[in-house]
């Protein structure tokens, strides 16, 4: 007698609605859309920068359109959500053992948050914002 494995067909386009955990996973996946789009904007920015002061000034003016403002707000939410979830995951991805004991996960994630805060402040300082 052969045993047939149970094969369940999962709905390929809405499987993630079955559990809040899947939904959070997908929320994080969706941030890649905005981050990816922002990367494209950065490539365009480099093109404009290389094209001279007039082109750069036009680029800065174009950034002030309402669509750009909405896009920036969405990209900012996505970037912060990605960063937070990434740092929270570091304690699972890179557990650190000293002697017999594992370093508490909160220290590992906390160290990442600390470095992130310092780096961001340095960038803001260099850019003349603070």
């Amino acid at each position: 007698m052969s045993r047939r494995p149970l094969i369940r067909e999962l709905p390929p386009t809405r499987w993630f609605l079955r559990h809040p955990r899947y939904l959070r996973y997908m929320a994080r996946e969706v941030t890649s859309l905005f981050v990816g789009a922002y990367c494209v904007l950065l490539v365009i920015a480099m093109q404009r920068l290389s094209a001279g002061p007039v082109a750069w000034q036009e680029f800065l003016v174009a950034l002030r359109s309402p669509a750009s403002l909405v896009f920036h707000l969405a990209a900012m939410a996505a970037a912060f959500y990605h960063a937070g979830t990434w740092f929270n995951a570091t304690q699972k991805a890179m557990p650190l053992q000293i002697g017999e004991d594992f370093v508490p996960g909160a220290y590992i994630s906390g160290a990442h948050y600390l470095v992130w805060a310092v780096l961001s402040l340095v960038v803001l300082f260099v850019a003349g914002v603070i």
């Binding site: 960063a83 992130w116 961001s120």
Partner: peptide, 10 residues
């Protein structure tokens, strides 16, 4: 991206 993108977008 985690370390740099938020401040760049800001």
């Amino acid at each position: 991206i985690a370390f740099c993108m938020p401040v760049i977008v800001v």
